[in-house]
Write a protein that binds this DNA or RNA. Structure first.
Length: 854
RNA sequence: GCCGACGUGGCGGAACUGGCAUACGCGCUCGACUCAAAAUCGAGUGGCCGUGAGGUCAUGCGGGUUCAACUCCCGCCGUCGGCACCA
C-alpha cells in the first residue's frame, strides 16, 4: 500500500477498501465449504434462489445480506456453514423476451446470470459459488426428467383428462397459479378459462395428511396456517343416494355425495349436481333437455365472464329426475347448479336448506321445501314445525336432532356418528375425509422449460424415455408460434423420434414441466451439483439435510414451500433421500415496496437500484441500513432517509478504533471523564457495557433480530466515543471493548471490520496488515465474561400507586426490608404519600418498588 | 363473508415470561468550528399547564382484570396479507 493510499484511506472510505477485501476472501476461500468436514457441526443456510431477471434491486439485498450476516455469525460460532446460491433459470420472461425481441432465451438468460453474479458479489456475501446450480442447463434439468420418470414408475405421476385452468396466453396453469375472485393468471393477468384436456399430474394429494403435520419443523405460524387452509381437510361422510325409477328411466344409478354434516341427512330436501357431473345427461328428463343444455352452455361461458361476487344470485335448473334419500326413502328432486363445484368432493351434494346458507338461498329462490332437523337456541324442539327464517349453521354441542327418525333427540355430535353407523350397516355410505388440495398439474405449453420425457407411439401408446437416454434436450431454436400451442410442436426434428419399445416412428411429448419442479428439490442438488449418477448424493444428503435455516418471502406459502415439502416426502419414499422435511427452520422476511408503497416492478418504474447507494456509501452501510430499518419480517416501503445515520455510525467505529486519543474541538466535555468517575471506574464501566452488549447481541443474531442488534452496537460505540480522549481511552478495557465491537459487527459489516482488525493487528506489530493470517471472519465468536458484565449497583424506580415518583441507586441484591426503609425515607416519596400510611409495598424482584396507599 | 397479521412521537421503530413507555436512528431547533457553506461535533426535542421544581395527559377507540397493562380479557374501528359458493 502506497503512502498516499494509506493517507487517503485514513478517513473511512468504503469504496476504497471493499473490493480489496472481497478479492482477499476469495483468495482465502472463506466461502468454500468442505462438505466432508465432520469436525464441526454443519449449518446449511439457504436463501431462495432468484429468477435471473438481469437486475438486482434493493429487495434482493434486503433478503440476502441479513442471511449472509447470519451465516457469518454461525461460522464464527464454529459451525461449518454451507450457503450456496444458484439461478431459477427457466421461465416465462426469457421466452417472452425471445418472442418480443427475437433473442435466444438461453443466451438472454445466461447473460443475465452473468450480470447478476457480479452484482451479487458486490454484497460481500459468502456464497459458495462452487455449488452453483443453473436450472436451465441440461446437467440440471435431466434430473427433473429423471425424477419425473421415477415418480411415474411409483404412480406419483400420471396423465389424466380433466377440466383445467387455461390462460389464453400462458396455457395450462396449476390451481395455485390462478388468482383472485375474477380468476386471472398470476403471470399475465388474463382471465382464466376451463378446458377439458389431457395433462400430466403429480399426486401431491397422496401426502395431504402428512403435509398437515408440521411437528419437527419450526415454521412461522401464518405459513403453517396458510398451508393447512390450502390443503383444507374436512371430515364427514360419503352418502350414496339412488336415482328413482321413472317413466323416462329405470333408476337405480348411484349418486354419491360428500357431506361434513351427515347429522343433517334427514333434512336433505333436494340434490344438486355440478354442470360437469357425469350423470347430467343420463338424468336429464327429455322435457327438461333444452333448458338443461342452455344452462350448461351458459355455465361454461360463465367462467369467461365477470363473476366477481360470491353472493350473487343462485342459478340452477331442474333435471326432471329424483333421487331416494337412503335414510328415509324419500324422493327428492335433482337439480343442476354451478354453485356446486365439479372438482370438489363428488361434484354433487345433498342440499339441506335449513342448515346451509347456500342451499337455503337456492331453496328460497326455486321454492323448494325446507325442513329443520337441528334445534337451535331460538327454536326448542316443541316448535320444530315452525318455518325456517334463515339457515341455522352451528356446531353447538347443545343442539339436538329433530325430525330425524330414530335419531331425533340426540345431540348433533352423536347424531353424526349414529347416522354414519347406520349408513355403513346398510352399505349406503361411510365416514370419509375430503381435501381441498388437488393434484398438481405440471404440463405447460411453453418452450423454455424441461421437456417431459415421454413418447407417443402408435403401437405402444405412451412410453417413458429410458433413464439412460436422458436428458431429452431442449432444441436450440423453435418457432414460438401462436399462444396456447406448445412451441416444441413446430420442431419436427425434436418431435419426431422412435419408440424406445418397438423402434417404430413416434412423437415426443411437446409440453414442458412447470418450472416449480425446478425449485422443488434444488437444495439437494447444491450438495453435489456435478453428480452424474443421481440427482442427490445420498451420503452427503444424510449429513447435510434438512436445511437448517431457509429464508425467503411468504408469497411462496402454498406453491414453492408446499411443493418442496411434497417432493422431499416423495423422494424419501423412493429411497432417494433420508429426510422427510426440506427446511427445519423457515424465516419469512418482509418485502421492500417501492417508495410509492406498491410492489417494486419495472413497469411501475419504482425499482430501487442498490448500486448507486453502494458506490456512494459502501456495501457495509447499505447492508447495515437494511438490517436497521425495522424487524426483518416486516419489510415496508423503501426510503433511503436515515442511511446517513448508519454511515456516521461506521465513521465513529472507525474513529474509535484508530484514534482513541483524539478529541473534539469545541466540545467542552471532550476528553474529560464523566463527573464522579476516575479511570478505574470508567474502565470497569466500559468492560461491563461491552460484555453486556455481547450478551444481547449474541441472542439477537441467533434470533434474526438484526434491527435491535445494530441499535445495541450503536450504543456501545456511543459509549466508546464518550470516553475517547480520556484517561480510559487506549486502556486494556478500552482495547477489549473495541475488539469486541469489531467482532460483533463483523457478520453484519464485514469489510470495515476486516480492515480495522488488520490495521489494529499491524499496529500491535503482529502482522503486515493484509489480514492473511487472521481474518476477523476466522475468529471465534467471543464469550461473555459474566463477572465483567455483572453490575454492582442498580437504579430502582419507585412508584406510589403505580405512578413514577423517584429513582434510587442501590446495591444489587439489597434486602427488601432495607430497600423499603430507604424508599420510605426519600423526600419525594414522603411528599407523595401526604402523611398516608402505606398499605403495602410491592417489590418486583428488585427491579421496581411500588408503594400502595389508601 | 371466512382465516391471519398489525395499529406506539413529525418519521423508521424499541420495550424480555405484565414492572421506568418512546431505546437506537432519522428529522427538526439552538450552539461550536468556518470569511461562508458543507461535513463534523455538542445540547435539546411526545402533548398540555408552569419562569422553575414539578404537575398532568398519552401506546387506534370503549370497557374490564391487576398494586401495576403497549403487553392479559371482552367489544368495536382501521390498515395490510391469504382464501373465494369447498358442501
Amino acid at each position: 500500500m502506497s503512502a498516499e493510499e494509506r493517507i487517503r484511506i485514513d478517513r473511512y472510505e468504503p469504496t476504497a477498501i471493499e473490493p480489496r477485501w472481497q478479492r482477499r476472501w476469495a483468495e482465502l476461500r472463506l466461502a468454500d465449504t468442505d462438505l466432508g468436514d465432520t469436525t464441526r457441526p454443519k449449518y446449511y443456510l439457504l436463501t431462495m434462489y432468484d429468477y435471473p431477471s438481469g437486475n438486482l434491486h434493493i429487495g434482493h439485498w434486503y433478503v440476502k445480506t441479513p442471511t449472509d450476516a447470519l451465516g457469518r455469525f454461525h461460522r464464527m460460532r464454529g459451525e461449518n456453514v454451507f450457503m450456496p446460491i444458484g439461478f431459477d433459470a427457466f421461465g416465462l420472461p426469457a421466452e417472452n423476451a425471445a418472442i418480443k425481441n427475437n433473442v435466444d432465451p438461453r443466451e438472454w438468460t445466461l447473460k443475465n446470470i452473468d450480470k447478476m453474479r457480479g452484482q451479487l458479489r458486490s454484497m460481500g456475501a459468502l456464497f459458495d459459488w462452487n455449488a452453483e446450480v443453473v436450472t436451465c442447463e441440461p446437467e440440471y434439468y435431466r434430473w427433473n426428467q429423471w425424477l419425473f420418470l421415477k415418480f411415474l414408475e411409483a404412480g406419483l405421476a400420471y396423465r389424466a383428462s380433466s377440466p383445467v385452468d387455461w390462460c389464453p396466453n400462458d396455457g395450462t396453469l396449476a390451481r395455485e397459479q390462478v388468482e383472485g375472485t375474477d380468476r386471472h393468471c398470476w403471470r399475465c393477468g388474463a382471465r382464466v378459462q376451463k378446458r377439458q384436456l389431457d395433462q400430466w399430474y403429480l399426486r401431491i394429494t397422496k401426502y395431504a395428511d402428512e403435509l398437515l403435520d408440521f411437528s419437527g419443523i419450526e415454521w412461522p405460524e401464518p405459513i403453517r396456517l396458510m398451508q393447512t387452509n390450502w390443503i383444507g381437510r374436512s371430515e364427514g361422510a360419503e352418502v350414496v343416494f339412488t336415482t328413482a325409477r321413472d317413466a323416462h328411466q329405470p333408476g337405480g344409478d348411484e349418486l354419491r355425495v360428500f357431506t361434513t354434516r351427515p347429522d343433517t341427512l334427514y333434512g336433505a330436501t333436494f340434490m344438486v349436481m355440478s354442470p360437469e357431473h357425469a350423470l347430467v345427461s343420463k338424468l336429464t328428463h327429455p322435457e327438461q333437455a333444452a333448458e338443461v343444455a342452455a344452462y350448461i352452455e351458459a355455465a361454461g361461458r360463465e367462467t369467461e365472464i365477470e363473476r366477481m361476487s360470491t353472493d350473487r344470485e343462485k342459478t340452477g335448473v331442474f333435471t326432471g329426475s329424483y333421487a331416494v334419500n337412503p335414510v328415509n326413502d324419500e324422493r327428492i328432486p335433482i337439480w343442476i347448479a354451478d354453485y356446486v363445484l365439479a372438482g370438489y368432493g363428488t361434484g354433487a351434494i345433498m342440499a339441506v336448506p335449513a342448515h346451509d346458507e347456500r342451499d337455503f338461498a337456492f331453496a328460497r329462490k326455486f321454492g323448494l321445501p325446507i325442513r329443520r332437523v337441528i334445534a337451535g337456541p331460538e327454536v326448542s324442539y316443541k316448535d320444530v314445525a315452525k318455518p325456517v327464517e334463515a339457515a341455522y349453521v352451528s356446531h353447538d354441542t347443545k343442539d339436538r336432532l329433530v325430525n330425524s327418525g330414530p335419531h331425533s333427540g340426540l345431540p348433533a355430535r352423536e347424531g353424526f356418528t349414529s347416522i354414519v353407523a347406520m349408513l355403513e350397516n346398510q352399505s349406503r355410505g361411510k365416514a370419509a375425509v375430503n381435501y381441498r388440495l388437488r393434484d398438481w398439474l405440471i404440463s405447460r405449453q411453453r418452450y423454455w422449460g424441461t421437456p417431459i420425457p415421454m413418447v407417443y407411439c402408435d403401437t405402444d401408446g405412451i412410453v417413458p424415455v429410458p433413464l439412460d437416454q436422458l436428458p431429452v434436450r431442449l432444441p436450440d431454436t423453435v418457432d414460438y408460434g401462436g399462444s396456447g400451442n406448445s412451441p416444441l410442436k413446430s420442431d419436427a426434428a425434436f418431435m419426431n423420434t422412435t419408440c424406445p419399445k418397438c423402434g417404430g416412428p413416434a412423437q415426443r411429448e411437446t409440453d414442458t414441466l412447470d418450472t416449480f419442479i425446478d425449485s422443488s428439490w434444488y437444495w439437494f442438488r447444491y450438495l453435489s451439483p456435478a453428480n452424474v449418477d443421481a440427482p442427490v448424493d445420498r451420503r452427503i444428503e444424510a449429513r447435510w439435510c434438512p436445511v437448517d435455516q431457509y429464508t425467503g418471502g411468504s408469497e411462496h406459502a402454498v406453491m414453492h414451500l408446499l411443493y418442496a415439502r411434497f417432493f422431499t416426502k416423495a423422494m424419501a419414499d423412493l429411497g432417494l433421500v433420508h429426510e422427510r422435511e426440506p427446511f427445519k427452520r423457515l424465516f419469512n422476511q418482509g418485502q421492500i415496496l417501492g417508495a410509492d408503497g406498491e410492489r417494486m416492478s419495472k413497469s411501475r418504474g419504482n425499482v430501487e437500484d442498490p448500486d448507486k447507494l453502494v458506490s456512494q456509501y459502501g456495501a457495509d452501510t447499505v447492508r447495515l441500513f437494511l438490517m436497521f430499518m425495522g424487524p426483518w419480517d416486516q419489510g415496508g416501503p423503501w426510503s433511503p432517509t436515515g442511511i446517513g445515520g448508519i454511515s456516521r455510525f461506521l465513521h465513529r467505529v472507525w474513529t474509535a478504533a484508530l484514534d482513541p486519543h483524539g478529541g473534539e474541538a469545541g466540545d467542552p466535555e471532550s476528553g474529560v471523564l464523566p463527573a464522579g468517575q476516575d479511570s478505574a471506574t470508567a474502565e470497569k464501566a466500559l468492560r461491563a457495557a461491552a460484555h453486556r452488549t455481547l450478551r444481547v447481541v449474541t441472542d439477537e443474531y441467533a434470533e434474526l433480530r438484526f434491527n435491535t442488534m445494530v441499535a445495541h452496537l450503536m450504543e456501545l460505540s456511543n459509549l466508546l466515543m464518550r470516553y475517547r480522549g480520556t484517561e480510559a481511552a487506549g486502556s486494556a478495557a478500552w482495547n477489549e471493548a473495541v475488539l469486541l465491537l469489531l467482532l460483533m459487527l463483523a457478520p453484519a459489516a464485514p469489510h470495515i471490520t476486516e480492515e480495522l482488525w488488520a490495521r489494529l493487528a499491524a499496529a500491535r506489530g503482529e502482522e503486515s496488515g493484509d489480514g492473511a493470517a487472521s481474518s476477523i471472519h476466522l475468529q471465534p465468536w467471543p464469550a461473555v465474561d459474566e463477572a465483567a458484565a455483572a453490575e454492582s449497583e442498580r437504579e430502582v424506580p419507585i412508584q406510589v400507586n403505580g405512578k413514577l415518583r423517584d429513582k434510587v441507586m442501590v446495591p444489587v441484591g439489597i434486602a427488601e426490608a432495607e430497600l423499603e426503609a430507604i424508599v420510605l425515607a426519600r423526600p419525594k416519596i414522603v411528599a407523595a404519600l401526604e402523611g398516608r400510611k402505606p398499605l403495602k409495598v410491592i417489590h418486583a424482584g428488585g427491579r421496581l418498588v411500588n408503594v400502595v396507599v389508601r
